[in-house]
Design a protein around this nucleic acid. Sequence first.
DNA 1: AGGTCGTTGTTATT
DNA 2: AATAACAACGACCT
Length: 620
Amino acid sequence: MGARVIYWFRTDLRLHDSPALQVALDLNPEVLWPIFTWDPHYVYKARGGLNRWQFLLDCQMDLSASITKLNPKSKLFLIREAPQTVLPKLFKSWKVTHIVFERDTDAYPRERDAAVTAAAEAAGIKVITRSGRTLWDSDAIVKQRDGKPTMSITQLQTTGKQLGLIPRPIPAPTSLPDPGPMPLDFESEPPAPTEDINSEQRTKSDTGYMSIAGPKGDFGIETMEELGFPSATTPHRGGESIALRMLDDIIDNEEYTAKFEKPKTSPAQFEPQSTTLLSPFLHFGALSPRLFYWRVQDLTDAYGNGASKPPTSITGQLLFRDMYFAAQAAIGPAFTQTIRNRHCRFIPWHLRSKVDPKTGMVTGEYEIDSEEAEVWFQRWKRGTTGFPWIDALMRQLRHDGWIHHLGRHSVACFLTRGGCYIDWERGAEVFEELLLDHEPACNAGNWQWLSCSAFFHQYFRCYSPIAFGRNWDKNGDFVRRWIPELKDFPAKFIYEPWKAPIQDQKKAGVRITGDGISEPKDSELATYPKPMFDFNKRRDICMAAMKDAYDVALFGDDPCIMDGTWKGSFLSDIENQDEDDEEDDMSDVDGRIDKEEDVKSESGKRKGSSKTKPSKKRKN
DNA sequence: AGGTCGTTGTTATT
DNA sequence: AATAACAACGACCT
């Protein structure tokens, strides 16, 4: 009897450059089942917005069609049960000899794959895995560094060089074996009732687990409607075919590809955007990072002088992705939180995560230590902060599922160290729900970067919600695109509309009024909210608090963080001194900005109020 | 121990 | 458009 192989697709929804699929085909199998399991973990427990579900279905449909082209009897078979429970039953019922899949170093997949592997080995099934989600095998990077995480791009580059050249992409298969019979002669196990973190956005509570083989009983892929979802809003569509076409277009544009410098690409450019927009395809594995890398690198080598180099080049972007994956591979599940993460600086943010004292892991809930901060967070999320640059980005994020990297910097800095002083984990959760390209390692890593918790430390470099956008887009076209209320606003005031005289507001057909939460009443004109705080004042407060946090120098693994005895280590009054209620009267905001003296003397007072600090802690 | 540099800050000045 | 001051972190190199 020949090999009877399950190829388990997960975050590798592609046929081109799949080392794991190649090794499955090298077994010369008698039969091969390409399967995808609907995992209750991703349906109920991980945050996932409608746009990302749409993108996933796109990728699945495209892959399924490509598989059928290679073998009319085959397609991507969707199985609706948790892999941990259904795979052992399939092993037996389908007389499987091998299961092959691409490795996944995220927290939950590691746990899941260990369980599946143990069950397979117990049943005498051979498990074969390959790395293919990153340029280098993240675990090999960690091993080479004796378990230490890559905390800078230099470290990743150095270690990568030691491991040798990034493997060249391998061609897509030209044919696939037949699938074998797929009897379901066992009890199916619907997911255990659990809290559905995504229930708000569903129209139906049932998410398509009507039967293990799907609504039509043919292991087919469901529609958004069958999944209980309203339509997605994103214009970005998924699938390997689109990814390869987009990559071809990028490579065809030799100048663009060879001279690409990330910091020079505009966050305000839209239709078309200034960057490649290939990240969502990398996330779902519809595009191999190694294929992307080598197509760009070969072009760059041929281009000669004048080509950009890492870290600003396109290949540099892929290196950063590997850096975050390798950091997560070394640090483990704590990488996506501050608590128990010894490489993440502890900063006493507002709205910190609640922690399960038994596991030391965050629970998904957070402490509302400040009603004001909670309001700021809600307004940030909805895109009604009153700062048009921030709001435009947040609205684009919600609608399209993608914003430019520097736009992400703007809103992340604003939420954390450069405005609201709110826990980066709150922002990361919002990105996790809304981003098409959400990657747990990259998301957590970038939020730590922007909040100056790890990877990046120059907290005195602070993005202005007014100046930064204006530098890229003087006329405010990007703001007008996403905040139509402001589309006729004079360019002079487009980034700070509260400064516009009433006559100008009337002429533009909009009133700058309201708290960004409730609908303003009795306004005949459209409205756009007043800014939720004086940015300059908040920046000074945040920067002083950051300096304090750096002086205290506590990290996420310090015992005093877990037991709460850290309280008192920080100049906690630093945050509670903007008492003079702004309320409705932000019109004199200009007048206030000049009062730096206030802030200076406050900070002098704080220094004098000498709270005793614990001796400086150091990580080693 | 000390100097330089780090993918992507802001503002004022030349 | 380029440059300096702002205030001043930590990795990396010598």
